[in-house]
Simulated assay, not measured.
Amino acid sequence: MFDYQLWFGFALSVVVFLSTPGPVTVMVANHGASDGLMASLCTVIGTNLASLVLIGVSLLVLFGVVGIDERWLSALTLVGSLYIIYFAFSILTELKQVSQLSLYKHQADRQGLITHIKQGFLVGIANPKDVLFFIGFFPLFFGVAESKAVAATALTITWVVLDYAILLVYAYLFSKICKPKFIKLTMLISALLLLGLGAVGVIKSVMDFW
């Protein structure tokens, strides 16, 4: 027996959560504006792989397979936040070096696309505190099926599909705007937002650790 009403509530909650701008959304928008649709799609692949890893760890904790150490998570969050700050500065560096952004859009080579996947994964995995979110969020909807395994599978698939769908919308919209001024503005705003999010992550992780 599958509870479609509860599942719909889960799906709606995920849409609201994923639509809220965060490091992943900001990065996908930035890559779409500066490097084109294919680069942004590769970024989405990387971020989604990171989500699967975090969900997998969360389910292992929920099913009692592994334990979780708050201080260890705080240390990893600090490292992840520092990487987000580093990535923000790399955007600012790229912005200074590029004068005709609209001319090189959609021209990322294979190596560049792999780099975007790696960057997407690293930024996606950069906040292991998401494990705690999944631990607290998923169990609320385990009632969608009688078996927890079936419920976890259904919820994970739903998350992955919605994650791809929402981020692909961001990727498509920002990749279609080719005005150099808009691209530069998007890159600048992306860098500043990532700097802010990274700084908040550093402060919070240090406070949590101590």
Rank of each mutant, 00 (worst) to 15 (best):
G124N: 04
L41R: 06
G112S: 13
F137V: 01
V28P: 04
L49H: 02
G64C: 06
G67N: 08
P180K: 09
F133K: 05
G198N: 07
L49T: 13
L195F: 13
I91G: 05
Q100F: 00
I157S: 08
L37V: 12
L167N: 14
V53H: 06
G9C: 06
K204C: 04
K204P: 02
F2T: 11
V161T: 08
I166Q: 03
L92H: 03
T93I: 12
G136Q: 08
G32T: 10
T186S: 15
Y4S: 08
V16H: 01
L6V: 10
W159A: 04
L167W: 11
M207H: 00
F63Y: 05
L95Y: 11
V28I: 12
L41Y: 05
L12S: 14
T153G: 00
G80C: 08
L49F: 09
H106D: 14
T186L: 12
F2Y: 15
A145N: 08
D208M: 14
G112L: 07
E146V: 15
L195P: 07
L6E: 02
S205L: 13
S74W: 03
L101H: 10
V144N: 05
E146T: 15
T93L: 09
G46H: 06
I45G: 02
P139V: 08
S102Q: 14
K129N: 09
F134S: 04
F87L: 15
M207Y: 00
Y164D: 03
Y172R: 11
V53G: 12
V206I: 15
A33Y: 10
K204I: 08
L132W: 03
L82N: 04
V169E: 10
F2N: 06
A152Q: 09
A50Q: 08
K105F: 00
L41G: 01
W210L: 15
I85Y: 00
W159S: 02
V28L: 06
T93R: 12
V26F: 07
Q5I: 11
A149C: 02
L59G: 04
P128N: 03
V202N: 00
V131C: 04
T156F: 00
L52D: 04
L122P: 03
Y164R: 04
L197V: 12
G22D: 06
V15I: 15
Q107I: 09
K204M: 10
G124A: 05
L52H: 03
F209K: 12
Y86M: 10
S74N: 14
C42T: 09
G143H: 09
V66H: 00
Y104H: 15
W210T: 15
L59S: 03
Q111H: 03
E146Q: 14
V26A: 12
L194Y: 04
G36R: 08
